[in-house]
Structures are given as C-alpha cells and as structure tokens.
Write a protein that binds this DNA or RNA. Structure first.
Lengths: 157, 157
DNA sequence: ATCATTTCGGTGACATGTCAACAATATGGT
DNA sequence: ACCATATTGTTGACATGTCACCGAAATGAT
C-alpha cells in the first residue's frame, strides 16, 4: 500500500527547478523581445505564423489553429495588435462569418527584426548548456511527460 | 563564421515540445486545482507558504520573498483572496510600514484539501513517466539551463 | 537632530487570459 | 425548402500580471 503520494526530496527539488525555469526563462525572453523589438510574447506568437503564410494573410480560424488559442483570446489580441498597426482585419470572401488577418508592412518589419535575436536567445539559454545527446534525451523526457498530460486532458473531452 | 544562429530541426522540435508542455501542464494543473478545490494557481502559490508558517502568519515582505513575486502583484492577489475570506490582513507590530497576512480557517481548510491531490497530479503527470535515473538527468539539465538564464538576468542588474 | 535614501505596501492604468453569452452564418438531415 | 445544430468571430465581465508612481515609515550618513 501507501502509494507514493508525496514527492521525495529529489523530486521536490526537480519540480521547484522546473517551475523556476518556467518562469525565469519566459521572463527573460519577454524582456529580450520587448527591449529589442517592442513586441510582446503574444505579439510574436501571432506574427510568426502570419509571416510564413502566403501574403501574410490567414483566416482567423486557421491562425487560431496554428497557435492553438481560443477564439476569444485570438480576437482580443488581434484587436490590440490592430490598434498598433501590426495587423489588419479583412472580410473573408468564402465565408461571411469569417475574418481574415493580414500582416501589415510594419508587422512584417517587426517580426523580421525580432526573429533572429529571438532564436539566438533560445539557443544561448536553452540549447547551449546541453550537448547533442542531452538534447536528444530531453526531447524523450518531454515526449513522455507530454503524453501523460495529453492523456489526462483527453479524459475530460 | 556562421554562428549556429537558427535552431536545427531537432532543436526546433524540442523547443516546440517544451512550449507545449509548459502550457498544457500548467493548464492541466490549474483545472485540477480549480475543479477539486476552487483555488487558482495564484491562490495556491500563496496559501502553500502561509500554511507552513507559524500560526499561518507571514509578513507581506516575507511572503513575497517566499514566492518571489513583486510587491504589487502580491498586494493585488492578497486583496482578491481577502475578499474571498482565504486570508486576512493585519497590522505589523514591529514596522508601521509593514502588513501581515494571516491564513483564515477557511484558507487553511482549502489548502489542506488541495495539497494532496495537487501533489498526486504532479507525480502522475511529471514524474511517473520518468525513472529515477531520468529524473536525476532532468534535474541536471534544468540546473544548467537555469544557470544560463540567471546569468543573463544578472547582467541587467 | 537632520535630511537624503531606501524600504514597504498599496493603487490605478493597462496588457493579457478565461469564461459565458451572443449574433450571424454555414451545414446537414428531413 | 426548412429547421435544428454547429461553426465563427466578437464582446463584456472578470481574474491575473506588469509598470509607474505614491505616501508613509525606517535607515543611514553627516
């Protein structure tokens, strides 16, 4: 009996490290983005798939699928970015319910300036501390933990 | 020349997995907490150190240090939790600037009911998919990445 | 003792994220 | 064609998080 319900000392330590990394890495990236490009993480998340789409144009539904965001979240964020001139909304020809989101020239300029430095930051902070074999292992660990999380999420559908 | 500026295919894959894990694990935990205990992640973050403090009483400054939150964030969250009866503010005897935060009986009940299931969820999702050696390795990886992140953060001080 | 500086907590404005509800439109079964 | 249902996007209310600033009080240098 006595399922191992609580975490042992090493697990508690690793869990604390994960939470700290989660927070501090995200904060470091947001600050780097904002400082270098004036973009927020939410801005970047939407600009990246838009910049890879033909003509920088995506239907809101498809942009939402790319980033896996809820519709309301996407709508709010697009509204904020529209105000700042990073994107523009257009009508959807195929479907009168739909809404197209187009990257403006200013938005294209912002993402193209931001992307290299963003990638450099990811490399320097996340990958440089590990060698190739360790990256491979970490990928395996993430796969397995993700599978457990997705299985849990799947139950409630 | 040509510093490895962009991520290679495996790195991009691992990075995408990390971001997905980051988001989905956090969401799974928040939902479990809210469903089982009516607490948000922010509630839990403050209730945990309070429940371990003598008399469930901590000075705001020290509570903030425990969770490493900014003062304004802590103040906002304590205000919201005060409204819901989870904690109560008191004057600080030593320092007239200070403010004490005390766990109410309702707050103690909430955290004590939430904690075991929270720990179970962490174990099931994060640690059960890994064996002991893998947990040890993951801890090493996190240590090294964290060191890189903290070094970066330290530069701007 | 005096006064600049620091610490402490709080507030308001705003950005972000979630939820419930809504209106308009599309879709599919009959 | 008709109508129940699903999809799409938006909105408003609210929780959360960040930032700049403030006022009060403690601290430290002189």
């Amino acid at each position: 009996m006595t399922e191992p319900q609580w975490l042992n000392a090493e697990e508690a330590d690793v869990w604390a490290k994960y939470r700290r990394l989660r927070r501090d890495l995200h904060k470091a990236q947001e600050q780097q983005l904002l400082r270098d490009s004036g973009l927020s993480a939410a801005d970047y998340a939407l600009l990246a798939p838009l910049s890879e789409a033909p003509e920088g144009l995506l239907r809101a539904r498809d942009l939402g699928a790319e980033v896996d965001w809820e519709r309301s979240r996407l709508s709010h964020q697009v509204s904020r970015m529209e105000k700042r001139g990073l994107v523009a909304r257009e009508a959807c020809a195929d479907d009168a319910r739909g809404s197209m989101v187009r990257l403006t020239p200013a938005g294209r300029k912002a993402i193209e300036e931001a992307a290299p430095r963003h990638a450099q930051t990811v490399r320097r902070l996340f990958f440089d501390p590990l060698d190739a074999e360790e990256v491979r292992l970490l990928g395996q660990f993430l796969d397995r933990i993700l599978a457990a999380v997705e299985a849990e999420a799947g139950e409630s559908l």
